[in-house]
Design a protein around this nucleic acid. Structure first.
Lengths: 108, 108
DNA sequence: AAAATTCATCGTAAATTTGCGATAGATTAA
DNA sequence: TTAATCTATCGCAAATTTACGATGAATTTT
């Protein structure tokens, strides 16, 4: 059991859920904030700022990458991450229409 | 290990992460949409619409309740759920300021 | 009163997430 | 060349999530 039934739902619901999932951990939110805060890209300075081991931060970065919320480039021995505005804009639009949908309720 | 280090992060980050987590499953998004779609409240009609067992739906409803995204009242033998606009508005505000923060990036 | 309905909760199993240390590959510094 | 640095990945352990069936409490219906 417990075979994730994701695929039984609509694509838009899956897409929104995946983006929400990427935000569903304070560490990833903190990472995104830190990446956004420094105008120029970031590498392992994130590790210094977060209360997590390097490997754990790396894992969170990977998830943010896979969700498309950041982009990553290699700069010598360092890795450089940036906010991926495209995805953020798409995310924002999806949420806006979702919120609009839930906006006018008169019950209870 | 793996003792969730949530508490090592800021309250705002934790709060946003928790709301995002509530959206981090297509079933819960589908539930919210269905609750919003019907102007009047909802009960186990949700079960008929979703491809999940009744107990599973009940569990998802509980999570949405705990996140504050819906309210629930008992109506005889039935349970009635509604969108909790307050939380949605708060959520929207948190996301807006978060998105604003990540908006103006020039790098990579 | 008895049977049926509605739904929350419990118990359980499988999958996923979170987190860390250790390691390895690549690059830079000595 | 050797040593040091940076970071992705592997392997593992613990916690959490997802999902279901079964059960039970409450309320209708018969």
């Amino acid at each position: 059991m417990a075979i994730h039934k994701k695929d039984a739902f609509g694509e838009d619901e899956q897409a929104l859920a995946e983006l929400a999932k990427a935000l569903a951990h304070p560490a990833r939110i903190a990472i995104l904030k830190e990446v956004a805060r420094r105008q120029t890209c970031i590498c392992g300075e994130i590790v210094e700022v977060l209360p997590l081991a390097q490997s754990t931060v790396s894992q969170h970065l990977k998830e943010l990458l896979q969700a498309g919320l950041i982009t990553g480039t290699v700069d010598g021995v360092k890795s450089c991450y940036c906010i991926n505005r495209k995805t953020f804009q798409r995310f924002e639009q999806m949420l806006n229409s979702f919120f609009k949908f839930t906006g006018d309720q008169t019950c209870c």
